Structure formats: structure tokens, C-alpha cells
Simulated assay, not measured.
Amino acid sequence: MTVLVVGSGGYLGSRLVPALLTRGHRVRAGFTDPRRSSAFGWGRRVDPVRCDVLDPATLPGALDGVDSVVYLVHRMGAGPDFRSEDAAGAEAMREAMAAAGVRRCVYVSGLAPSGDERRPLSRHMASRLEVEELLSAGPTPVLTLRAGIILGAGSMSFEMLRTLCERLPVQPVPRWMRHRRVEPVAERDVVEALCRALEVTPRSGHRDLGCGEALTYPALLRRFSRIAGVPTVRVPVLGVPWDLVAAGLTPLVDEGADTVGPLIESLQHDMVAAGRASDLFPGTWEMTGVDDAIRRALVG
């Protein structure tokens, strides 16, 4: 099978490509600049192509002869207009896949809050779900894998978690964050799910990815601190809105405000998996637990 990985140079794409090669797939690695493929150990084993979803003229050539597409484009962090750019890219890819006769597309999104929450979706989550809808509006079957915090070295969420625990031994925790739950997922399980999604009958819909354990954010910080051996303490604080939290954290982490803001805004929602993506795929598959995933990420 020939698989186009759109976003091969990103965190998840750079982990997925070697896994696909190991499974015997032919990989067409999509980059905005194909010369970037030389920075990866697998660069000589793939067909690097220019694939810029904001430049639709690059898509027909990238998709020529492709059986399946893995879509890993997320514009968050590129600027305040990331949502409209995400939407434009999804529409362009949908039309290009239809014209090329692609058999399937697999997209990685974020865990969606339960439908009974009263507060509006964060910009980050609204964009993820909008891309899912736009990609799925064409004739190409699109399977969306929704993941929360990915526990893996290099994951934006994991590196923020690491940085907070290493640089902030006393961690203020706003009231609105103390009872919100999150279900992380190990990097290795996201990669495994993507590979398996390409090996089953093409279908549309979505599945959630989670480790099977939901924690509050303070509990996750506590768990990381214990496993990493970094002493921290959490202090409850009142009356601190998410945007003030984001402004305070931005100088501490190695990300800009355009990235930190939408991520912190999303913490106002529960992010817990509904069902199990592993039920979709044949064969036994035990998801990695939180502690083991953190340990693996710390040495990875």
C-alpha cells in the first residue's frame, strides 16, 4: 500500500513513518519543503514530496498513485488565524483526495468533550472537530482517531507537562482545573492505532484513543512528578481565568502564546475517551498505562 503522510516532519508524523515502513508500506512523505526529509533517519527510505494544504496546486502530484492518506495537519501555533487555515487545508485535501480516487483517509483529532457541557468549545477543540467534519464531507472514507494528551517525548502536551514540573515546584491550580478529568494515551498506542487503521476495511466515523484511566489535571501532575523524581506541590487558587493562566505559563514553557493559549483554554473541558478504538481492530491489543507511558516518554 502506498501511504501519503501529510505532516511527516511533525511530532507524530516523524514517529509514524518508520512504523509504516516496518510494516511494509510504501511511504510518500509530505512536507511543505521536501528537503526537510534529509533530517530524519528514514529520509532515504521514503518518497519525499511537496504537500502544502494551503497551496492546493501541490496536492494532485502528492496524491498521484496514493492508496491512503494519514492527515496530521494542525495549524495551532501558526498564528491567531489558525482555525481558518485548518479549515481551508481540510477542504483542499478533501477535494484533492476525491479527484485522485484515494481509498481512505485517517485523521488524528482531539478528544471531544461530552455533549452536555454548557461552556463553548475551546478554539483548539472547535478547530479539530471542524476539520473532522470538513474532511468527512467528501466521498473518501475518513476515520478519525481522537486523542487527548499524548504521552511521548516531543509531544507538545507532554513537554509542557515536563516543563511545568521541572520549572515550577509550587504549582498554583485554579478551581476550574481541579475537577476536570483527562485521559492520556501513550505515543506508541497512537502510532499502533494509525497503522491498524490503514489495515482494516476503509470506513468513516471516529474512535477515541485513551489509556483506560482518567485523572484530574492535578493528579496527572502529581503522577508525573513522582515518576520523574521531581518534587512538586500543588496549591489551590481562586478566581484565576484560563487566559490569565496561559499568560503566566507562556514565559515558562518553550512555546509561544499562540500555542499555549488554545491548549490551556481546552483544559476547561473533560477529555475522556468514550469507548475503545482497539475494539475496531482485529487481534489483541493492550493499551499502555499512564505510569508506563510516562516512563517510556522520559527515556525517549
Rank of each mutant, 00 (worst) to 15 (best):
M1T: 10
V6F: 02
G9E: 03
L12T: 14
G13I: 03
R15C: 07
A19F: 01
H25F: 12
R26E: 14
V27D: 06
A29I: 08
A29H: 08
G30N: 07
R35N: 07
A39T: 13
F40R: 02
F40M: 08
W42P: 07
R44C: 04
D47I: 00
R50K: 13
R50E: 14
C51L: 08
V53A: 10
L54G: 12
T58C: 06
T58Q: 11
L59K: 09
P60A: 04
A62D: 01
Y71F: 15
Y71M: 04
L72N: 01
M76G: 10
G79P: 09
A87W: 06
A88T: 06
A90Y: 03
E91D: 15
E95A: 14
A98G: 15
A99L: 13
A100I: 05
A100C: 14
A100G: 12
V102M: 04
R103M: 04
R104M: 07
C105N: 11
V108F: 03
S109F: 01
D116R: 14
P120E: 00
R123C: 02
E130W: 04
E133P: 06
S136E: 08
P139T: 12
P139S: 14
T140D: 00
L143F: 06
I149H: 07
G152V: 07
G154L: 02
S155M: 10
E159S: 13
L161D: 05
R162G: 07
L164I: 11
P169M: 02
Q171N: 09
P172G: 12
R175N: 13
W176I: 09
R178W: 05
E183I: 11
V190R: 11
E192V: 00
L194P: 09
C195R: 12
C195N: 13
R196I: 04
V200E: 05
R203I: 03
L209K: 06
G210I: 05
C211R: 02
T216F: 02
L220A: 08
A228F: 06
P236R: 15
P236E: 05
V237T: 10
V237G: 11
G239F: 11
L244W: 11
A246G: 02
A246K: 00
L252E: 00
V260R: 02
E265C: 12
Q268I: 09
A274N: 13
A277W: 04
S278V: 13
T284Q: 11
W285R: 14
A293Q: 01
L298M: 15
